[in-house]
Amino acid sequence: MTTAPEETPASDDIIVFKDVHKWFGSFHVLRGITTSVRRGEKVVIMGPSGSGKSTFIRAVNRLEEHQRGQIFVDGVEMTNDVRHIDAIRRDVGMVFQSFNLFPHLSVINNITLAPIKVRKLPRREAEQAARALLERVGIPEQAEKYPAELSGGQQQRVAIARALAMQPNVMLFDEPTSALDPEMIREVLDVMRELARSGMTMMIVTHEIGFAREAADRVIFMDEGTIVEEGPPKEFFINPKEERTKLFLHQILTH
């Protein structure tokens, strides 16, 4: 298989970025991002803090609005049209660094809220599906508890189950393990590995090199709002081309 040329038909690419720019006030965060993600591809995004990697994946479901360029998700362009945005968000799951579970709802209600209110699923069906998902992420016994009663790793697994309950086509992970204690990182990564094997399209911002090596199809390295280098993990980690990539890898591998 060769690397996809630029004129690949859109049907194969689930996410397409064309020269995307974004400013926070006068700060130029994204400086012309052009890339695409194929269906089923697992893309890991790395880069120093402030490089724009979070903004990049948050632009996919428009938690951050871009100001120039085009973003297509599943063939639909992200514009200010609320119907498009809501439709895309239904099909794009997101997992945050700080979990963002709803503290006033029990675990099961955290998971069933969106399927019931957005997908209009009957409560019984939604709860059955939620329990199956909790089984899948390995904490079926926590369904009736409240988020604050769970460990960080368990909370993040609930957050993954919550996103999966909407049966998304794409999952976005924004530093999913950065807020976790070392012994909890593993349990979350295990769930993500299982998800990767199931064929889900995934975009993951992370510093977990082991995970990137093993699960990613492609690694994107960002710095100062641009994509500096991208390629398969083997090439990227063993034989990086750009000086900035080498410096970054040197820093995180020898810290």
């Binding site: 938690l63 809501d86 997101m94 700080s98 963002n100 709803f102 969106a114 957005v118």
Partner: peptide, 30 residues
């Protein structure tokens, strides 16, 4: 409220009014 609450709700596809009604107001009033 942490802005992440509304973001998580919107990311799940809940509309703005649903986010206010089911996520923001219950926590704010509590």
């Amino acid at each position: 409220l942490h802005p992440g609450q509304a973001q998580a709700s919107r990311a799940l596809g809940l509309a703005a009014w649903q986010t206010t009604l089911f996520i923001s107001l219950p926590q704010a009033i509590r």
